[in-house]
Every structure is written in structure tokens, then in C-alpha cells.
Design a protein around this nucleic acid. Sequence first.
RNA 1: GGUCCCAUCGUCUAGCGGUCUAGGACGUGGCCCUCUCAAGGCUAAAACACGGGUUCGAUUCCCGUUGGGACCGCCA
Length: 470
Amino acid sequence: MSDTVRVRFAPSPTGHLHIGGARTALFNWLYARHFGGAFVLRIEDTDRTRSTDEYIDAIIEGMTWLGLDWDEGPFRQMDRFDLYRSYVERLVQEGRAYYCYCSAEDLEARRQKAMAEGKSPAYDGRCRRLTEPVAGVTPAVRFRMPQIGQTVVDDLIRGKVVFDNAQLDDLIIVRSDGTPTYNLTVVVDDVDMKITHVIRGDDHLNNTPKQIQLYEAFGYSVPKFAHLPMILGSDKTRLSKRHGATSVMAYHEMGYLPEALLNYLVRLGWSYGDQEVFSRDELTRYFSFENVGKAAAVFNPEKLLWLNQQYIMAMAPEALAKMIVPFLAREKVIAEGGSLDMAWLGRAVKTLQERAKTLVELARSLRYYIVEDIDFDPKAKEKFLNEKGLPLLKELHAELLGLAEFTHDGLEGVFKAVVAKHGVKLGALAQPVRVAVTGGTESPGIYEVLEVLGKEKTLKRIEKAIAAIG
RNA sequence: GGUCCCAUCGUCUAGCGGUCUAGGACGUGGCCCUCUCAAGGCUAAAACACGGGUUCGAUUCCCGUUGGGACCGCCA
């Protein structure tokens, strides 16, 4: 590859950045980074009725969160209408495009009729030969598609795909309101921005021959194409809201790490032997279209969850602690804007990070460390805070009182001694204590918990538990 | 309806003619570890859609069938 690689992600701002879009952006980003090329962000907002600035911000927010940084842009097609106009004028002058006076309503009606009769709903070309304008009608502009021969899409993932030009109908390149349409702007911009590789979803494959005809009409060489397989929902239909969250930022809110989402997404369609977990660096190093599959992939939330846990486990506790604070506030574990001893929080996080699949779970599980008072789970209380455990708890409380430092080894010594004295198994003591200090029956090792909790809170909670029994 | 794409365990995938009694991962079951829950280790069940070719030999190549998907917009 002697020429510099230039790729782009070109979303339309008609919705949030979703899973499918993020995957397309990721593959483009990976390809650019792999070859040290440029990644361009272009907003395709020619549909004025559906595009909004809010969605542009949302897309940028999503890309930023994922760490998919772009080198140029964001460019907005709305700012480039003059450029498109000059290209269209050229086409019209050369007879490669013509004015179409059919109304949108008529077109729609004819399409419906054709479909109902089982015929192809393609445009019939009735305005092709018009020489005079139709009075009182502002026309759209159509591209005159060649009707004989074939167009070949040479795809990096699928190989050569052949289309008969007779199947290609004359597409509208300028709406009657004067705004250009996607098939025109995508070609003009990819030429203007010197895009070398068009990497996009499979759903664009059928548009590609039409776009290639546009390239040829302009006299430009076509870029390389790579059409990625689609991501499907569990019922094998196109991924949508019905299948749960599709917005990338929704995953942020649910407590997923961007690294985990990216890692999951890249494995949908791409593989590198048996490896499942990749660092960003490995991804850019290993990425190649040779390892991209052709078949659509079903989105599997379970595996994403597992990957997220892998990433949470691998994180430095201090970094995780910093990241968890907003989630603690949202879960009402701490007050909004409240402060915490971050070094201590890091130690607390360390005991729980391999037990959480999401940051939301982690934040919730941190509760008993942070809040002053805990409530006992009724079932746990009934099972473990009873007469049987009472002497053990009392004995432990007395011993703990004399323990100066709450260290893992120190605590273990005290527990072992109490257990030995009463001739019971460790569980007979550990479980009541666990319920006493955490309110429930599940937690990290009891010594770890007490070490983080500290002497004061521990004794207070054991006292409360004893009181609850008696 | 037309055109195009696709097809290995439930899911993501490895496999690029013999190494396949088809490998890994998620999930599921069992066992181990163990103060609970996790994590971890071991283990089990689980797939080449079907039919024709080509070949000494097909999961792998070709054709067809079936099944799924996408597109056919003055959406992108």
C-alpha cells in the first residue's frame, strides 16, 4: 500500500450512535490506525427534515467515549451544498443527468402499484426524454444510469460482485427543494476527501454499483470497498430497539467499559485465531480484512457482559475507584458531590472488582462499605443472626475490641481462635459476621471486608446484630 | 416480485483438500478450591443445512435446493 490510507465514518444525524454504527466506525478506525492513515468523520445531514444538531452531538459523544478519535472533521454536508451543485451542473450539461417532473406522490403510488403487481418498483424513466420543462413544477434531478453492460464491485471482503446495469434505475441526485441526496454526496465527498477505502455496512452493497456509475460519470477512479456483515438481534433480524439497548451511550450508563464494548464489537465478524481479549494496541496491530467474515452476526449480550467483567477485573483498583464515583452518586450510595477518601475507596473496590460484571453492579455492591447504617436482609437475618451464633458474636466482639490493627492476618488469628475455642467450623462464625456487617450472605472474604470496613464500623455493626438477636 | 449477499455447536468463531474421533470463547450441567459469593482449575453435553458433482480424498472447490438477510425512497 503505497498511497496513504484514508477512510471515513459517515453517519447521518438521525439518531444516537448505535451498536452497528459504532462497529462500522471501529473497523474504519482500526484500518486507519493499522496503516497509519487518516480517519475522517463526516456527518451526512442532507436530509434536513430528519437531521438534528442534538444527534450530531450525541454521535460525537459516543465516538469520544469509545475513544475512536478522528483526524479530520467533523465535516457537515450541509456546509458543502455549493460543491455538490457544481458537480450536478456538470452532469446536467453533459447529459448525464436530467430533470424529473414526477411528483413524489405519483412516484410513491406507481411504486406501490408495481409492488402489488409483482413488478419491479424501479423508476420507469419517463422524464428521460423530456426536452421542455413542465410549467409550474420544480423538478428533481435524476442521474441517467447506463442501461447496458455490467458494473463490478470489487469488494475486499466479498470479492467481485457483478450487477447488470439494466437493474440500476435512474436515481434522484437532487431533490425538488434543491438539496442533494445521499448517493450523490457520498460520491462527491469521497472523491473530494480523497477517501481510499470505503468501509461500511453490508446494507450498502446494492447501492455501490450506482455509486460506481457516478464515479465513472465524473471521470474519477473508484476507491476500494469493504462491506461489513450486519449485526443482528437474537431473532436474526436487523438489530433494533426491540432487542434492547442499541445506543452506545446506553451501555455507558449501564456500566460497561468502552474497551469491553469495542472488544466485543470487533469480534463480531473479525477474529484472530483463538484470542478473545485484545488490547487496543493488539487490535490495531492485528487488524486485517483477511480475517473479517462474511456472515451476519447475532448480538449476544451475555458475552459482552463476560468481557466487561474481564476488563473490570484487569483494571487498576485506583483507576476503577475514580471511574465508579459517578455511579455511586447515581445509585445514591453517596450524596451528589460528596467526597470520599479515594485511596480507601481503591482498597474497597479491589475486594469487589472480580465480583462485578458492570460498574453499576460494582457501585451497588460497595454500599455497605460506605453508608453508615445497613439493613439486614430478612432471610439472612433469620438464618444466621440467631441464638446459635450469639455466643460466637459476643466472643468475637470482645476479642476484636482488643485488636489494635485490623489487618488480614490479625483478623484471621482472632477468628481462628474463637472458632477453635467453641469447636465450630469457620463458617459458623463467618456467616453471622458477614450478615452483621454487610446485611447479606454474599461478600468478599470476611477478613478483607473487615479490614476495609475498619474497627469502628465493624464493632458497631456486630453490636447492632447482637442487639437484634437478643 | 426483482437484484445482491450469506450459511460450522443455542451464540461469537477457528478451519483456507488429507493434521477433523471438527478446535477455542460465551452460555448451560458436573466436579475441585472454599467462611459466603465470585474468580480460577478440571470436565460434560452441543455444530460442518440438504442434494448433486470435481477429486484417490471434501467442513474446505463448483452447481442446485432450502433457509436467512439486505437493497429496490425526493432516507442514509
